[in-house]
Amino acid sequence: MKGLQVADPLLISVLIFVIAIFVGYELITKVPPTLHTPLMSGSNAISGIIVIGAIVIAGQGHSSLSIVLGVIAVALATVNVVGGFLVTDRMLRMFRPRERPGSKKPDSESPK
């Protein structure tokens, strides 16, 4: 790469990793306990990001062993991604602020 003082790519990766940990920490400490299960299953789905690594391995056609490992990895990670996001959405759909779904007057029924 021209014009850039290229550092060891591993160091850059470490930098990105550390920053991401901090960002994650800041964001997640703000999640209220009510949403801890969706947070967990949603972040769980995100950890299925490994699917893109699996896709490369399966698609490289490097050797039959790597294809087998790759296909299994793609399948496992896809279950994680697809199942994780769907089930999180299913849960989050249920979270309602006030009584009853169709109720237009938010304060009408909840006792204070």
């Binding site: 699917v51 699996a54 896709i55 490369v56 399966a58 698609g59 490289q60 056609g61 294809i67 790759g70 296909v71 299994i72 990895a73 793609v74 399948a75 496992l76 990670a77 896809t78 279950v79 994680n80 991604v81 697809v82 199942g83 994780g84 769907l86 089930v87 299913r90």
Partner: peptide, 23 residues
């Protein structure tokens, strides 16, 4: 880097079906 897609499609298809049914 990716030269073959059929294996990827196979893996994604299997994983999606299992994931959707479970979820």
């Amino acid at each position: 880097e990716i030269i073959e897609f059929e294996w990827i499609i196979l893996g994604v298809a299997i994983g999606s079906v299992i994931g959707i049914v479970l979820a």
